[in-house]
């Protein structure tokens, strides 16, 4: 059924991504591809993998943006100019347009936990869901001819044959900077919900009316360049020195 669940899912499993912490290392991209090429559904194929025109199916990609405030392009000049690394995968939207456009019923949103999945045995590879998604979360696998997307590692999070610590999406487990968090965003007391509340987590493209489950934590305000300048001046100043350092200071002055 490609109609969305009539009642809101009891759980809304999803990711919270901290843009203040992500260093843009792409480890999540690689671990996602590694886990999912052997996991749920068809493998994530590459086209011309060792050639010049290499391309392939990925469920998670990291973009980098530069953000320039009004008043200056030099980092620090206007206080906030910066590079922001921006990991992006399926946001498991509450009003997922990719689900309702599907003509076959292959694309669906689970009522129990809100995860948006593709039943690949029913997918005809028409590509309309990828058109409907404003976020570019879906990519057609050109070898299998079916639509691929983030499954929130549905084959990990409920998997009792792996250690409990591993029962989170592969990207979350692997992130060396701890920029990615996983949990139930329907529960206001969950760790991720508290994080979103504390940091003012945001929706991407709210104007598209998709009501994404995944949230992004905006970068914290940056310290202005001049804020540390007093520290720099102290290096030239020995006024407060006592004991051995005062003696050494005096000796060196006299040489």
């Amino acid at each position: 059924m490609t109609s969305l669940p009539a009642t809101a899912p009891a759980k809304k499993l999803g990711l919270v991504i901290d843009l203040d912490v992500c260093v843009g290392c792409h480890a999540c991209v690689i671990s996602c591809k590694e886990w999912n090429t052997g996991g749920y559904g068809a493998a994530l194929s590459d086209q011309d993998p060792y050639g010049a025109e290499v391309s392939g199916t990925f469920l998670n990609r990291v973009h980098s943006f530069e953000v320039i405030p009004e008043g200056g392009e030099i980092v620090g000049e206007a206080g906030e100019a910066r590079i922001v690394h921006f990991p992006k995968s399926c946001l498991h939207c509450d009003d997922a347009p990719c689900v309702t456009v599907c003509p076959t019923g292959a694309s669906y949103k689970r009522t129990e936990d809100g995860i948006v999945l593709v039943d690949e045995d029913m997918c005809i590879g028409c590509g309309l869901c990828a058109w409907a998604c404003p976020y570019g979360a879906r990519e057609m696998d050109l070898a299998a001819g079916v639509m691929k997307k983030c499954t929130l590692c549905v084959d990990r999070i409920y998997n009792e044959t792996i250690q409990e610590i591993d029962r989170v999406p592969s990207c979350v487990r692997t992130c060396p900077a701890n920029a990615r968090h996983y949990g139930d965003l329907a529960d206001p007391q969950s760790e991720v919900s508290l994080m979103v509340a504390a940091r003012g987590g945001i929706d991407l493209m709210p104007e598209q009316g998709t009501r994404p489950v995944n949230k992004y934590l905006p970068p914290r305000p940056r310290q202005v360049l001049g804020a540390g300048s007093e520290q720099a001046l102290l290096a030239e100043n020995t006024d407060g020195a006592t004991g051995f350092f005062a003696w050494l200071d005096g000796v060196l002055e006299r040489i």
Partner: peptide
Amino acid sequence: TGLGFIGKVRLF
């Protein structure tokens, strides 16, 4: 990107 509160956003 939700980064409009900082300034103009451009793909790097």
